[in-house]
Simulated scan of single mutants.
Amino acid sequence: MLRRTLLAVVLFTLSVSGAFAAEPTELGKGKIADASLEKLAPKSGFITDAKTFAKLWKAWRPAEAVPEIDFRQDLVIVGLANGPNLVMFQPKLQENGDLTFVVASTRMGGPGFGYRLVKVSREGIERVNGTPIAAGLVNGTITIPGSTSMEDGQTIEIKFFEFDPRLADASADLIDEAVLTNIQHETGKTTEIPFAVGKDYEVKKDRRYYITVFVLQDKTRTHIGEIDGKRGLNKVLENGDRAPIDVILREVNK
């Protein structure tokens, strides 16, 4: 997420050829003293599903009902600032479909964080600050922890499978796959890579789904990805849940 502590005046100096201001609907803004709640903010800077939004709203604004949002038509932009500061930004939609925004804030020192939530129509938006909005049934972030050692230039392979739970001996069907090439990671720093699979596929109620994530070096699996770092089958779309997932990598033999 793009986070900067700037003088508020710079917010309105952004002038990009071919850009026009997106019309945001204010949802809420404020300051939260409990810094631990900041982790609920999306790493991408935007929210595209009701479950993620409701969890964040209930934690940040517990005294208010969760606004009803049709995420098929709209998305929510989340801006943050360190300390007890007011947050300001003006989304601008570029001609190439990238919705861009720069966060500005007041400059008060102290604990906690400031935030602002706005709703924006999805129409014409393909990316937000360069990150693609959900382009598949299963989407999220692949996290490479700073403690993980990895050679540059490796490939991440993501596969999306469907199976019939009523057939014990039947193999799963490969529905979609994505290959991310030339991965760059610096030991000591966390690397986050967005991904999406399953575009234009229709979920079947009597089927179950899972993904596999592996890092490949010369066709050898060096790292494996697990949802929330939990070992076992990476089940997805359970009970229709399409909230973004966090896949954490670890070395295969650890």
Rank of each mutant, 00 (worst) to 15 (best):
H223C: 13
R250Y: 11
I193A: 04
R166I: 02
I224V: 14
A243F: 06
L180K: 12
G240T: 15
T220W: 04
G240N: 05
D169Q: 10
N239D: 14
V197M: 02
I227T: 15
I193D: 04
G229Y: 15
D228Q: 12
N253T: 05
V179T: 14
A172S: 15
T187M: 07
L249W: 04
A178P: 03
G229T: 14
I211L: 13
T220G: 01
A168C: 12
D246L: 07
E186K: 07
D218W: 05
K204H: 09
H223A: 15
R208L: 11
K235S: 13
I245E: 05
V247I: 14
A172T: 08
K199A: 09
T187S: 10
L233R: 15
F195Q: 10
R231H: 12
K205I: 13
Y201P: 00
V236L: 04
T220Y: 09
L249T: 08
L167V: 04
R207V: 06
V203D: 02
R242H: 14
K205N: 09
T191M: 01
I248V: 14
D176T: 10
D176P: 01
Y209E: 01
V197Q: 02
T181F: 04
I175N: 00
E226N: 13
H223M: 13
A178C: 08
L174V: 14
P194L: 08
R242Y: 07
K189D: 11
I175Y: 00
R242D: 15
N253G: 02
K199G: 09
D228R: 11
S171W: 09
D169A: 07
G240W: 06
I211H: 01
D164A: 02
K235R: 10
Y210C: 05
E177T: 08
V197S: 01
K189N: 11
D241V: 14
L216V: 04
A243S: 15
P194S: 10
L249C: 08
R207N: 12
L180F: 07
E226H: 13
D200K: 12
T190F: 13
I227P: 00
E251V: 05
Y201W: 11
K199S: 12
K230L: 08
L249F: 03
Y201G: 00
E238Y: 04
T187F: 06
V236E: 03
V213Y: 04
K204A: 12
G188N: 11
V203N: 02
E251Q: 12
K254W: 04
V213W: 07
D173P: 00
D218I: 06
L249E: 06
E177P: 02
K235P: 01
G188A: 12
K254C: 00
D218M: 05
A178E: 11
N239E: 10
K205R: 14
L167M: 14
D169I: 03
G232Q: 09
K189E: 03
H185R: 04
D228I: 08
G232W: 09
F195G: 10
L174P: 00
I248D: 09
F214D: 05
E238N: 07
I248A: 15
G229L: 15
D218P: 01
V252S: 09
N239K: 13
L180T: 05
P165C: 06
K219T: 05
